[in-house]
Measured scan of single mutants.
Amino acid sequence: TTVKVNGTKYKFDTPEEAQKFAKKAADKYNLKVVVDGDDLRVE
């Protein structure tokens, strides 16, 4: 599972880890998590 934040992709072994990271990033930058198929985007 990958998470894309500000054009940078981060790869995670499990969707749970990816979800946690995406949520933290979204909170930090005051953005929202967008599900894109198997991957997540923070925008």
Rank of each mutant, 00 (worst) to 15 (best):
D13G: 10
D38I: 10
V33F: 05
K24L: 13
G37Q: 05
A18Y: 00
K24M: 14
T14F: 04
K28N: 07
V5W: 11
V3K: 00
T2Q: 06
T1R: 11
Q19H: 11
L40Q: 02
V35N: 08
T1E: 01
D39C: 15
F12V: 00
V35Q: 13
L31V: 11
Q19Y: 15
N30L: 06
A18L: 01
T14Q: 04
E17C: 05
K4Y: 15
K9S: 14
V5H: 05
V33Q: 02
A22I: 04
N30E: 08
V35F: 12
N6Q: 06
R41Y: 09
N30G: 15
K20M: 12
K24Q: 14
E43W: 06
T1Q: 07
G7L: 06
A22C: 03
D36W: 06
D13W: 05
T1P: 06
P15N: 07
V5Y: 07
E16Y: 08
T8M: 14
T1I: 12
V5M: 12
D27M: 09
E16P: 01
K4W: 15
D36I: 07
K28I: 09
V33M: 05
T14V: 03
A26D: 02
T2A: 06
F12Y: 01
E17T: 04
A25H: 12
V34S: 07
F21R: 01
T1C: 10
V42W: 03
F12P: 01
K23G: 05
D39L: 14
A25P: 00
A18H: 00
V5F: 14
R41F: 07
V33E: 02
F12A: 00
K32A: 11
K11A: 08
V3Y: 00
N30D: 12
A25Q: 15
K28S: 07
Y29A: 08
V33L: 07
V35T: 10
V3L: 02
Y29M: 11
T14E: 03
K23M: 09
A18G: 03
K32N: 10
D13V: 07
D13K: 12
V35I: 13
A22L: 05
G37T: 04
V42R: 02
R41W: 07
L40G: 02
K9L: 14
K20I: 12
A18E: 01
D13A: 13
G7Q: 06
E16F: 07
E43K: 06
K11M: 12
V5A: 03
F12I: 01
G7W: 04
A22W: 02
A26R: 03
V35P: 09
K20V: 10
A22S: 02
K32F: 11
